[in-house]
């Protein structure tokens, strides 16, 4: 079920003067993050926000932010966050203008509650989708959706259509079909005891264009040319 709703937090933004990767790098060096604000038929706005404030805001579960651009406040949804290779620094954020009374499509994270029956029997709980797509009003986006897994047995799954949603929130069937499994309990794989014969020497390499098999004459030994 749903927990608390997300609240809107204000972020200060200023228009960008330059554009392009060189300018973006300079901005990041100065503690600013380039963001883009688009939607609602208005022109795209290329902005800069304070890196620290933005990263702190993104760590919360909220999805709706208020961008304060030159004294004008605009409500917006986070559509995409780009991180660096190590996932430590935010590189760029896409904000989508939103009317708080309109219906929006957003991805809401799932929070697993309880221990599945199948897990106590030796199965493994596999999260296939850590978040699901829902449709709801922008001012009532749930922070996360709690999903009770205690009744899942071995080999069974909870599908997107079975997730209990709060009032006013529906599954976005265009982006996620109700039959999509989101959390499943899978049986453990049978451990195959490796015999010494199975452990092929590391030096074995298949000859060019050949597939080494266990049959004779194809033991994977590299062919040696005459005159070597």
């Amino acid at each position: 079920m749903s927990a608390k709703k997300t609240s809107s937090e204000s972020l200060k933004a200023m228009p960008r003067e330059g554009s392009g990767s060189r300018d973006s790098r300079r901005a990041r060096r100065d503690g600013k993050i380039p963001v883009v604000l688009y939607g609602h038929g208005e022109a795209n706005a290329h902005l800069l926000t304070d890196a620290h404030a933005l990263e702190l805001a993104l760590r919360t579960e909220q999805q709706v932010f208020t961008l304060d651009v030159n004294g004008k406040s605009e409500s917006c949804l986070v559509r995409e966050v780009q991180y660096d290779t190590f996932g430590l620094n935010v590189l760029h954020v896409d904000f989508n203008r939103v009317d708080l009374k309109e219906e929006v499509e957003v991805e809401v994270a799932l929070e697993i509650v309880g221990k599945a029956k199948g897990v106590t029997e030796g199965g493994t709980l596999v999260t296939q989708h850590p978040a699901i797509w829902v449709k709801c009003r922008a001012d009532s986006i749930p922070a996360h959706l709690e999903i009770d897994v205690t009744e899942i047995e071995m080999g069974h799954a909870i599908h997107a259509g079975e997730v209990k949603l709060p009032k006013g929130v529906t599954l976005d069937e265009d982006k996620m079909e109700p039959e999509t499994p989101v959390i499943a309990v899978v049986a453990p794989k049978a451990e195959v005891e490796e015999t010494p014969d199975d452990e092929a020497p590391e030096g074995e390499a298949p000859a060019e264009g050949e597939t080494p098999t266990d049959g004779e004459g194809s033991d994977g030994e590299p062919e040696k040319k005459e005159g070597d």
Binding site: E208, G209, P212
Partner: peptide, 20 residues
């Protein structure tokens, strides 16, 4: 077996690992 089933070339050059 943690090795390719079939390869186009038996040996390849060292190469360089640059960047992230």
């Amino acid at each position: 077996k943690n090795m390719p089933k079939r390869t186009k070339h038996r040996k390849v050059q060292k190469g360089r690992l640059k960047g992230n």
